[in-house]
């Protein structure tokens, strides 16, 4: 009985975060801030729903076989979700999508420009040596 209530609460908690992340997707100004809300709240939302279902099954079906499986799913989600988020945001940056005009700092651009400058310098020195 208690397991059922805890499970239902976790699933509800997860769905609330799903809702918040979709709301953030509409409200945020640029792709980077949208990624923040979309990928993150989806993680906690998914965790809540997945583990909630596992605990719910203890009370509802009376089976302990669900929870370990849902835990494994949750662990694999935690391992893979950030990699896809990282790939998406890096692809967005590399394809030249500008930051929102309210952004305060962009150290990555400074770094890339410095690197490009270095490469040009090294090219020139190579040519000079030749």
């Amino acid at each position: 009985m208690i397991a059922e209530i805890v499970g239902e609460f976790l699933v509800l908690f997860g769905t609330i975060f799903y809702f918040l992340s979709s709301l953030g997707l509409i409200r945020m100004p640029d792709v980077y801030n949208r990624m923040q809300t979309a990928t993150k709240s989806a993680t906690l939302g998914s965790l809540g729903v997945i583990i909630g279902v596992g605990i719910w099954a203890i009370g509802h079906v009376g089976s302990y076989a669900w929870l370990p499986k849902t835990l494994v799913i949750a662990v694999f989600l935690l391992l893979t979700n950030p990699i896809s988020a990282h790939a998406l945001i890096r692809a967005a940056y590399k394809s030249g999508i500008p930051l929102w005009e309210g952004s305060v700092v962009d150290k990555y651009r400074e770094y890339l420009e410095k690197e490009e400058g270095k490469e040009e310098v090294s090219d020139e020195t190579k040519e000079g040596e030749q």
Binding site: Q36, H86, Y93
Partner: peptide, 11 residues
């Protein structure tokens, strides 16, 4: 860092 909301590792 990526999983903690508010921060994403870009590179």
């Amino acid at each position: 860092i990526t999983l903690t909301p508010g921060t994403i590792t870009l590179d």
